[in-house]
Design a protein around this nucleic acid. Sequence first.
DNA 1: ATGGCATTATGCTAATGA
Length: 267
Amino acid sequence: MRLASWNVNSLKVRLPHLLDWLDEAKPDLLGLQETKLVDEKFPREAIESAGYHVAFAGQPTYNGVAVLARADRFAPLDACVVNDPSLPDDQKRLLAVTATPLDGGPSLRFINAYMPNGSAVGSEKYAYKLAWLAALRDRLAAELEQHARLALVGDFNIAPEDIDVHDPAAWQGQILCSEPERAAFQAFVALGLHDSLRLVHPSAEGAFSWWDYRQAGFRRNLGLRIDLVMISSALQSAVLDAGIDKGPRKREQPSDHAPVWADLRDA
DNA sequence: ATGGCATTATGCTAATGA
């Protein structure tokens, strides 16, 4: 079973890339972020024609999330929850679904998040980010009580450790790397969520998921690892491999993020 | 040094992202 996450930075622009990647990587469950589409304009038919169930929640211009599940392996997505009453506002950043395999295997709770960027340490948006992350932690604690088999995927907008940063000295204390943000990430870890890539590649360097469009950031691998697939303790021993697919980032008119994935042994 | 690049919208400039 392949779990994946991709910040597409406009699904309208990136739909051809998405359809190609579905065909190529065949993820079982995929969380998308920054679809930047109102629901009326979501390309549901194109995605269903590619063999996927889909749930989505969008708004104009910013944010927007979606979850795709292979229709040949899962029942239509169930118990979809958008956002959370305790979150500070109604930005479309969180979409949780329950995926039930058609073969009778155990279901999986799949939570897709586009965590706030935070703009700059100390800004109003930064305070919003920290409040949002705290609310998500509380929601995850409740979700884990209901669903031992749980994955949290998305654009975390946090580089968990210095190894996830191309130039840790330059980024020290900056947005995406500040101690309060990393502490919020560690609060997810404390709930029993594991960063799948570090489970299988604990010391891999230069494994980034985002590169600035400017200054030839991708060619020079000046990136950050801010997109993650985290899995609960019940799934930890099932992880076979995890990685980042740089292929789509090499194409014309790419998203600035690459898809990230983790392969799990079927239950 | 606050730009550089990409996307969106009460559009041709401004806001946002990371």
